[in-house]
Simulated assay, not measured.
Amino acid sequence: MALKRTNVYADDEDLALIKEAAARLGVSEAELIREGIHRIALAQRVWDEPIVTDDETFDLGGPITRDDVREVMAGARGPGEPHERGHAA
């Protein structure tokens, strides 16, 4: 991948956080900034084609309830695995 140089203005607090993270991770500050730019670019991308056409649908078998999710999650845990209560569902 060819890299191009550009200038970016950033808050001092953000730059300090980047500096700390780079030192902790053992990578350059520039690498973290490039990764951030790449993630934002991908997150803001607009696709030319829809993932699902108007003719395609997904049948999930009806409404999924909170109890349905809990039942599946309870079955996914192995014996002796702790049950963690979260805020979701």
Score class of each variant (00 low, 15 high):
H83A: 03
L3F: 09
A89K: 00
T57P: 02
Y9M: 08
L42M: 13
M73W: 03
D48N: 10
S28G: 14
R77F: 04
F58D: 06
V72G: 01
Q44M: 08
D59N: 15
E31G: 05
D67M: 04
E29N: 07
D67N: 09
D68H: 04
R39T: 08
R85V: 00
E13Y: 07
R45Y: 12
K4D: 11
I40T: 11
G86H: 01
H87V: 01
H83R: 05
D54A: 12
M73I: 03
K4Q: 14
E81A: 08
H83F: 03
D67P: 00
R5T: 14
A16C: 05
L32Q: 04
A23E: 15
H38F: 09
V52T: 10
D12M: 07
A41N: 11
Y9H: 07
P63K: 11
V8H: 05
R77N: 05
G36W: 10
G62H: 04
R77P: 03
G80K: 00
E35R: 14
I40F: 11
W47G: 04
E31A: 14
I51M: 10
A21S: 13
V8N: 03
D59K: 09
V72Y: 03
T53S: 15
E56W: 13
W47P: 02
L15C: 08
V52K: 09
A41Y: 13
M1K: 09
A10S: 08
Q44E: 14
W47F: 11
R24N: 07
A89T: 04
G36S: 09
D12K: 13
G61W: 11
D59Q: 10
G86W: 00
H38W: 08
Q44I: 08
V69T: 02
A30R: 15
D11W: 10
D11C: 05
A22T: 07
I18K: 02
L60A: 12
R85H: 00
W47Y: 09
R77A: 07
E84G: 00
A76L: 15
A2T: 13
V46R: 15
L42N: 14
I37Q: 10
K4E: 15
T53H: 08
E49V: 12
L25D: 14
F58W: 09
R34Q: 12
I37K: 10
G75E: 01
A21R: 14
G75V: 00
G80L: 02
T65D: 01
L42Y: 13
